[in-house]
Design a protein around this nucleic acid. Sequence first.
DNA 1: TGAACTTAGTTGAAGCCTAAACTATTCCGG
DNA 2: CCGGAATAGTTTAGGCTTCAACTAAGTTCA
Lengths: 162, 162
Amino acid sequence: MPTNWLDVEQQRAWRAYIVGTTLLLERLDRDLRESHGLSLPEYEILVRLSEAPERRLRMAEIADSVKNSRSRITHTVARMERAGLVDRVQCTSDGRGVYAHLTDTGHQRLVDAAPCHVASVRAALIDVVAKDELAALTRVFTAVADGLSPGTRDPILTAVSS
Amino acid sequence: MPTNWLDVEQQRAWRAYIVGTTLLLERLDRDLRESHGLSLPEYEILVRLSEAPERRLRMAEIADSVKNSRSRITHTVARMERAGLVDRVQCTSDGRGVYAHLTDTGHQRLVDAAPCHVASVRAALIDVVAKDELAALTRVFTAVADGLSPGTRDPILTAVSS
DNA sequence: TGAACTTAGTTGAAGCCTAAACTATTCCGG
DNA sequence: CCGGAATAGTTTAGGCTTCAACTAAGTTCA
């Protein structure tokens, strides 16, 4: 079967996307690190934990929600525990299970970092695109995620309420 | 100044984007590795070199075009050289300069990998998105890249010809 | 009950990336 | 021409990620 190459428009879209994403993720990570000593992956975990009932989640739930491997979550949570951002709590109902639980310190760290992070996201992405382009972005990446990981959508991506 | 938080639509867009991007980049990288033993960053470098005059670029040109640090390019090109994909050639006009030059092996490797990679990009992104959404994607990330790295746009992103 | 299988999570080694310091060369002003 | 500043690229160490192998606990089914 001959390759169905990308046409010029598609190639432009693809390259713009990788280049923009490389710059964007690097910037957000750097801003968080410099101002609050958090990496972007750590920040994302803090957010998920802060939104969870009792501020805790099973390791696998974290892994699923941020789309990282379990191994990676183990390592990252271990670092966060060393930094006092989370506790690890044995799950009583499942002897294999472990909860990562947001500490007060961790919560405060998130509260401190959030305004700065939101400002970065706005400055670099949200505020430089039109409303309808943002809507297109949502559709595009919802479709992408659904194609690559069907049936595991973030609740916020389907419900309108926070 | 009170934080200008993201509204629900903006939050949906942002989360869809990170989650989708995490899955997408991971998938493309994995596909390339498994089928052709290349990482996505390596593949991108091969593409840039293959398009360059005489199939060679200065280290800094590579770094700029893929938006990676020079240090990272040094490391990545060193690995690629070990793998026989590129040569390193001392620049005659500037004693400090080094060219990375695509070898025949490297070019063949790219030719072999390209159809597979394009198929992955199509399956995961291009073919799951409408034409106008793709155009929006281009606009969004061109704006993002321009905001974060003004004045260093990829030629393909401004010219219509390949 | 118990053997096989699955799931949750961890571990350790190897590879990749970052940051900062470093070498070598070129550029610029006097 | 010289000295200082800037540029090109490399190096090294340390941190992060991946991979494969591993432990431990739960599940299934005869």
